[in-house]
Design a protein around this nucleic acid. Sequence first.
DNA 1: AGTTAACCCTGAGAGC
DNA 2: TGCTCTCAGGGTTAAC
Length: 269
Amino acid sequence: MPELPEVETTRRGLAPLLTGRRLRGATVREPRLRYPVPAGLGEQVAGQAITALERRGKYLILRLEAGWLLLHLGMSGSLRLAGAAEPAGRHDHVDLELDGGDRLRLTDPRRFGSLLPGAGDPAEHPRLRALGPEPLGPAFDGDHLYRRARGRRLAVKAFLMDARTVVGVGNIYANEALYRAGIRPDRAAGRISRQRYRRLAAALRAVLEAAVAAGGTTLRDFTDGAGQPGYFALELAVYGGGACPSCGGALRRLRIAQRSTWLCPRCQR
DNA sequence: AGTTAACCCTGAGAGC
DNA sequence: TGCTCTCAGGGTTAAC
């Protein structure tokens, strides 16, 4: 379940290995991802050098000399460099072939990920156009959350996980940020004070920064660009249940917007 | 217009 | 052992 820290970990691991390399082509073994991978991908990218690997929310943007590839890892996706002789597994759907013979390999058992080519300004792409601010960037703070929440009756957790509110926040980090801020996840977004939103914004920023520093959270299958797991799972306070790290009471589970939600009923109000 | 549910997909784990 | 059932969930679209 790659959220912002896992995508950023992937980006940081791969960017220095990819920048400046030239693509020979692509092998598409399974084009049926979230959106169909275009048939002419190999011809489209062949001969182009990679100029950068960027991130916007949970999307990765692989910049080429002419145009770019927009990648999303969905729920179960991962990207890594595979050696020239490494055989492809059942879920290795796309290889981008590099000049040295090795490949940038997209693996995604559940196939919720995507790979979309484009040209021009990626920010204008329909998938990126309506996205909210980066939670680690200057445009995001408690006042932003407070303003956007005016009149909204949905649960604050669903509000926080909406990429139009702020990008990069999935189920794990929404649970953690709300716990750290002492806010009940099922409270209506419009009924939270500006002061408490400031606390929530700070908690979200802190938990995301700590998770990036730990290389992301590996619950089952996340690995970085070198195939290594992340260690932030050790620091999760509420996700997955158990006892509250603060008061010792039993954590409770709710369902909000079809997602498992964990909270401490004593520490979160 | 805001909110909720369905949908895409496979693997893991539980229960029988 | 092997079957069936449930759950995991990001993001888009449809329906209420």
